[in-house]
Amino acid sequence: MEAILQIAVLAIVPLIFLSMAGLLPWVSGVLVVALEGFMLLGAFVGAVVSSLSGYQSVGFLAAIGAGLVIGAVMAYVMVYLRADQVVAGIAFNIAAVGATSFFFALIESHHGKLTPVRGGTVSVPFLSDLPVVGVVFSQHWLAILAPILVVALAFVLFRTGVGLRLRAVGDFSAGAHAAGVNVGGYRFWATAASGALAALGGAFLAIVSVGDFTENMTAGRGYIALTIVILGRWKPWGAAAGALLFAVAEGLSVVWQGFAGLPSQLFLSIPYLLTLLAVTASARASHGPVEEGRPMTVWA
């Protein structure tokens, strides 16, 4: 049981960062398919920089910085140059797999095997002493930060003027423009921030969850995160609940590997099957921001 919880926590934290990274620009009308690539980039930068610098936090900061820069570039391409968001995202994802693998191999051939710095675990007093569930409260500090991020994003989106503007931009950009909102600016910064958040999730995966960087190690988590956003109906709480569901499925699949003589691949496919089911079930019932994937309309 503790093992399942431990795996689930290590699985859910990247998914939380990723789904928040997907949700933020999506609400503003930008469908960031590039999430997968941002995450992989973050994993790569985080693993390399923390190994080379010897400081874990420097690895995280470098991942955030790299995600912000690449997120801004993608944002410029999708928002201001009006590139097709799906095509741009997929192209970027394919490029990210190749580039990160190549450069990781190149760096390891110069420096030898890279090992990201481990550690950073903090324990919540009292709660971490609880039987069984105590393990949940004795985790890396970023894991503690993840639920705070969900609360913060929910607050910003639904209780502040900035959130109002993000939602307005995603629903009716021409109307938002008329109301004095800088449509392009909001979409640009939401997308850039998405790059930083996704990269942080990737860095967590590489440094904390796995402790290494491997080729295409994100294995579609970026796409799963997009599904989680749909499942959570474009709301931070909903997405967090969706992330929990997927993390538990992943934990079960790891624990049940080889169980009852069934092939382990069957269990490993559970999250992906769940993705398919989730999208099928929610496709009719909900629709996302009206302007998702559309270039902005602002009057001349």
Binding site: G161, V162, R165, R167, A168, A179, V181
Partner: peptide
């Protein structure tokens, strides 16, 4: 903006950020 309430639309035009 269709997805917002009337009050939220007013807030939007008032340029409230916080």
């Amino acid at each position: 903006i269709p997805s917002l309430s009337i009050a939220e639309n007013i807030a939007l035009r008032r340029q409230i950020l916080g």
